[in-house]
Amino acid sequence: MPVAEAVAALAALARPVAAVETGTAEARGAVAARDIVVGTGRPEARTALRDGWAVSTAAIVGASPYAPVRLARTPAWVEAGAPLPADADALLPPEAVPPEAVPPEAAGGEPLEIEVEVAAGEGTRAPGAEMPSGARLVMAGERVTALQALALAAAGLAQLTVRRPRLRLLAAAPDTLTPLLGAWIAARGGVAEPAARPAEVDPLADAILAPGADAVVVIGGTGLGRRDITASALARAGRLHAHGIALRPGESAGFGEAAGRPVLLLPGRPDATLAAWLALGRPLLAALAGAGPETTPTLPLTRKVASVIGLTEAVFLHRTASGVEPLGGAEIPLHRLARADAALLVPPAHEGYPAGTAVEVLPL
């Protein structure tokens, strides 16, 4: 089955999972279930963007060394982030008031001559300007970033509604791939639940059918070997939609459904596992999370990439100052795969790309 057809079929099996409430700090990477907008504008009062002396600009209009303006008392000192007094609308710089004129508690004091004027609002944030009422901080279907979490916390939004799919990962021991896939799933807002993959068809079918997950990912056992039973187990547990994807590496991947949930079968060799996850697993996770379209960076290749017509080819890349360096695809040794921090999926209609071609890459 072509990769594009497989992705579409997998997406048809997936339904966005139920939305849950979570804390702002824990929401990073998760997909927002609805738009998140600011309720009450912030700050409620004018606040200082820097340290300085709070003044009313109307009281010091035209102040200069040649025409100082006399104030009845020393202005109030305000630290960055603190609200200004109600009658103040700007900040004088710290050096505008000489140290000898500052009373012990930085308020009150003797009359004072000011020799500099400032514009209204200078050094301050107007009420409601930091977080205007009605401002949309996160769109539905958007993955919450660390910066958005910062803005949400500043807006006083302690809880938000997200979709966080739970994926059961079934892998046989020794298992070196589940930790990596689990980290990738967590980074994109999902929850990975590792479990042992039984070595017999019936117990594996039972493990696929076990409740509690939104999708099941079986790692290994997808080939034609005598102990490769995952396709048979899925067929027994539910329905095997495809076994054999036009993907290199990862040709023996497959998918189907059981108990109303999508089931993804990944090959057991690291390069094939990761290629099949990038081509099929990431779109599946996005569909379960209700994620909208995401942009991918475009970078130039430092060397040419050759590909086979008719297959989607996964090429692992290493980002450099001048672009992305191809490391290899099918049968790439682990010591080279370990350097990968991005990947490229070459469409089946291409024979590859010459050096210097700008290509869309998937960050790992």
Rank of each mutant, 00 (worst) to 15 (best):
A259Q: 08
G62I: 06
D175N: 08
A275P: 02
A340E: 01
E21W: 13
L234P: 11
G189I: 06
A106H: 14
T24Q: 08
S322Q: 14
A58N: 13
P363F: 00
V191K: 12
G310W: 07
V346P: 12
E325Q: 13
W77H: 09
L152K: 06
E100L: 05
G328Y: 04
R143F: 01
P75T: 05
T320A: 04
A349M: 13
S133E: 15
K304Q: 14
E325V: 00
G328R: 04
I309G: 11
P333D: 11
A253H: 09
M139Q: 15
P2F: 14
A242P: 04
A306C: 13
G189K: 07
I309M: 14
P300W: 01
I208K: 13
G256S: 08
V69K: 12
L288W: 07
W184F: 08
A14V: 10
S56H: 12
S307L: 05
A192S: 14
I219G: 08
T124I: 02
P16W: 09
R136I: 06
G141F: 01
L288F: 01
A129D: 14
V102D: 04
L92Q: 03
P333V: 15
A12N: 13
A32G: 01
L209H: 09
P198D: 07
G81A: 01
D35G: 09
A19Y: 02
G39R: 12
A80C: 04
A154N: 11
A286G: 04
A120W: 04
H241F: 13
V3H: 03
A33I: 00
E130W: 10
V308P: 02
E122L: 13
G225E: 11
M139K: 14
E5I: 13
L265A: 07
G128M: 08
D89N: 14
G190R: 03
A154Y: 00
D51T: 04
P43F: 10
R282D: 12
G141N: 00
V217P: 11
E117S: 15
R336Y: 08
H350N: 13
D206I: 09
P127K: 10
R42N: 01
E325L: 15
A186M: 02
D214W: 09
D341E: 05
G109F: 03
T22N: 07
L327V: 03
A9W: 08
V218S: 14
A237S: 11
T57F: 07
R248Y: 10
A30F: 03
A32F: 06
T302M: 06
L209P: 00
H318A: 14
I332G: 00
L209S: 15
R42C: 01
E325A: 02
L181C: 01
W184N: 06
R339V: 01
A12W: 12
L317A: 02
V97S: 05
L92K: 06
A258W: 04
L284W: 10
A272S: 15
A88P: 00
V201H: 11
D214Q: 10
A45G: 07
P111G: 02
D175G: 01
G238L: 12
E294D: 10
R227A: 15
P165K: 07
